[in-house]
Computed example of a mutant assay.
Amino acid sequence: MKKMQVREAKAGFSAVVEAAENGEPTIITKHGKPAAVVIPVGDAERLYPNRKPNLGTFLMSFPGGLEFERNDSPMREIDL
């Protein structure tokens, strides 16, 4: 993994982006300490997925499934 200072990254930003396109992440340092990482899009999508499952999808993914017993008898008499 390549490391470069912010100054270098600014001057060669297109090279940093090209390296990421080729699958090579780059660590950007600020005052000698790691501050950021430029990574390929595929890695970012895996680390930070955009789509979060909705409640129905989450419940359906429950191991063993969900089964509910339904009582069809009316709760009370209704006078219409």
Rank of each mutant, 00 (worst) to 15 (best):
E18P: 00
A20C: 09
N22W: 00
A44S: 07
P53V: 06
E77M: 09
K33W: 00
G42I: 11
R46W: 03
L55K: 09
L80E: 13
K52M: 12
E18C: 01
S61K: 12
G42A: 13
T29A: 07
T26V: 15
L80P: 08
V41H: 11
V17I: 10
T26M: 03
I39W: 01
M1S: 10
K30F: 09
P74S: 10
D72K: 13
E8C: 00
P40L: 08
E24D: 08
M4N: 03
D72L: 13
T57I: 00
P25G: 05
F68S: 08
K30Q: 10
I28D: 05
E18Q: 15
E77I: 13
S14N: 07
G32Q: 03
S73I: 11
G42N: 14
M1N: 09
M1K: 04
F58G: 04
P34N: 10
M1G: 07
I27C: 02
A9D: 05
R51Y: 06
F62V: 15
P74Y: 11
A20I: 07
K30W: 05
E21N: 13
K10Y: 06
E45N: 11
K3H: 09
E18G: 06
F58I: 11
V41L: 15
V38W: 01
R76F: 14
D79L: 15
L66G: 01
R76H: 13
N54R: 08
A19P: 01
L47C: 06
M4W: 06
G12R: 09
K10F: 08
G64Y: 08
D72E: 13
S73G: 06
E45G: 00
H31V: 04
A44W: 12
M1C: 02
F68G: 02
